[in-house]
Structures are given as C-alpha cells and as structure tokens.
C-alpha cells in the first residue's frame, strides 16, 4: 500500500535522510524504531509532505512527493504528530469534527463520533471542554481520534506512548488493534521496544538517516547485535 524508495530529506542545508526505503501492506502494523534523532519523525513528515524531500513515495500506486499536505491527506494518509498539536481554543468535540475532511459526515467512512466516544468514554465526558484544558493522556486519545475521523487508509503515528501512564498505554494498544481490525494500516514510530514487538507484524530499525534492519518481531528478538548497536541505550 505504501512504498517508500530512496527517500532523502533536508532541513534547510542539512541532509537528514539518506535513502530510506520501507513498505507497509494493507491492514499491516509496521513499526519504525531507532534512537532519538535518527530521522524517524522526519521520515513520516517527508511522507506527509511537510519537509523538503526527494526520492519516491508511492501510496496506492500514486506518487505523493510534490503534493501538498492537504492533498496527501485526501488520498487517505493520516498523520498523528508527536507534538499532538490539538487545537487548544476549540472544544474536544470541535477538534474531532475538524478531523473530518468535509462538513458532512461520510456515511461510508469507517469511524463516527459515536465510535470514538464508545472507545474513549472520557472524551465524551470532556466533549464541551476546551481541548487545551484536558490532560496529556486525553490529548493523546483526542489527537488519534481526530485523525481517524478523517477515515485514513493508512495512519502514521509518531511516539504515541511517550510520557503516558501504563494504563493509558494499554488503552492505546487496544485502539491499535481496533484500527487494524477495521482494515487500516499503521506505521508506528515507537521508542518502547516491548510494545512494538508485541503489536507489529514487521519492524524497521533506523540509524543515521538510513534503514539498518528490517524483519519480523521474531527476527529482531534473535538479533542482539542490531538491538545493542541501534536500539539499547
């Protein structure tokens, strides 16, 4: 579904990605691992059209590079940034509604407001509260649900569990399974190896702006060299 080949990305004059390649199939959960600063976030920003990039990003056999971010979103790619970027002055519900790409709810879409409230009753309780006032865990649920409201076919999620209580992390893991069950692919940037090994079908490990390993959770468990060199602190 998503095929990235020889992706290079730049921030001004600094060259961040040096020919990244990766693939995500339909309904697959794929994790992108690596230490801070190796270019994982930049990779998904480049796919989303938010940094200068060269190479090839095919999504459903269409080239994404050169399109604007809003056009890429309309093709069916969803993005949840690490910074969450909830709209603080708007209510929780208004945030969710802005996740939809048009004002009329899409009947054929996979997700409705009711779905979100069923998955996270806490969001319904807070529906009329300004989103800037809710807790960090609630904001993480909100930002995920907001992107899902746009009914993406593939959702890219950057460090969703960072700084969250174990209980909330469990909730999110449940949500990822629900997302997969509805036929949506996930490209997950994750720091916590245990979670990634547990829910992903395949994993990539990045180092210095390149992919240094790709394989199944089983293969990564057995490969202590890669883990020592590129993951463990």
């Amino acid at each position: 579904m998503l095929q990235v080949e020889d992706l290079h990305a730049y921030y001004g004059k600094s060259h961040i990605l040096h020919g990244v390649h990766l693939q995500v199939g339909r309904g697959e959960i794929v994790s992108l691992l690596g230490r801070n600063g190796v270019g994982r976030s930049t990779t998904i920003k480049a796919i989303m059209g938010q940094v200068d990039a060269a190479g090839s990003v095919l999504f459903k056999n269409e080239q994404m590079l050169g399109l604007k971010a809003y056009q890429i979103a309309h093709k069916g790619l969803g993005y949840v940034p690490e910074s969450r970027d909830i709209f603080p002055a708007l209510t929780v519900e208004q945030n969710l509604l802005l996740g939809m790409k048009s004002s009329k709810p899409d009947k054929s879409g996979r997700w409705s407001l009711a779905d979100m409230y069923r998955l996270f009753p806490r969001l319904e309780e807070r529906a009329r509260v300004q989103a800037g006032m809710i807790s960090g865990g609630e904001q993480q649920m909100l930002t995920l649900c907001r992107t899902l409201m746009g009914d993406p076919d593939l959702i890219m999620i950057d460090e969703p569990t960072e700084g969250l209580a174990p209980k909330v992390v469990e909730l999110l893991a449940e949500l990822f399974k629900e997302i997969k069950n509805r036929g949506v692919s996930i490209l997950l940037v994750e720091q916590k190896l245990a979670i990634a090994l547990n829910i992903s079908q395949r994993l990539y490990v990045m180092g210095h702006g390149r992919i240094v390993f790709e394989g199944t959770p089983q293969e990564l468990r057995q490969n202590s060299t890669i883990r020592k060199e590129w993951l463990e602190v």
């Binding site: 604007k68 979103a73 992107t147």
Partner: peptide, 8 residues
C-alpha cells in the same frame, strides 16, 4: 501544519 495534515 496540523490543520493541513488533516486535509484542510
């Protein structure tokens, strides 16, 4: 940037 990534 977020508003744009949501398709606006």
């Amino acid at each position: 940037h977020m508003a744009e990534a949501l398709g606006h």
